[in-house]
């Protein structure tokens, strides 16, 4: 097994455990809503996810656009499936299914 991969997994896994468990164990009071830490945490999550979504679709749009129709179908289906129940899992599966269907129809 690749040693660098194990080290990477251990660092990220330890951080994930700390992020999930330590606030429950240590934080008995709410963070001040307008505080620097609260604002930083509130911004980092959306920033990271928006960045990663952009980075994941950018190679399909630049430098040479490809599979634009499946991409549009996948994005639209993800958004539309999310709206009724706000379920991340349902939206993910619907988006992937729409992408695959559009890919099959346009191939």
């Amino acid at each position: 097994m690749n040693a660098d991969l194990i080290l990477l997994a251990l660092i990220v896994g330890a951080a994930n455990w700390a992020f999930r468990a330590l606030p429950v164990l240590l934080l008995r009071r709410d963070l001040p809503p307008g505080g620097t830490l609260a604002r930083f945490l509130a911004a980092t999550g959306p920033a990271a996810i928006a960045t990663l979504f952009t980075a994941s679709v950018l190679p399909q749009l630049w430098p040479v656009p490809r599979d634009a129709l499946p991409l549009a179908a996948g994005v639209a289906a993800t958004v539309l499936a999310f709206l009724p129940g706000r379920s991340v899992v349902t939206a993910t599966l619907a988006g992937a299914a729409a992408y695959g269907l559009a890919f099959a129809l346009t191939a």
Binding site: S56, T92, A94, A97
Partner: peptide, 21 residues
């Protein structure tokens, strides 16, 4: 290939759904 393409888009769909949430 269509199933392969669908699974390939799963990551982007997951990021987008998380972003919406």
């Amino acid at each position: 290939p269509a199933l392969d393409a669908a699974l390939g888009f799963m990551l982007s769909a997951l990021f987008l759904a998380l972003l919406l949430s």
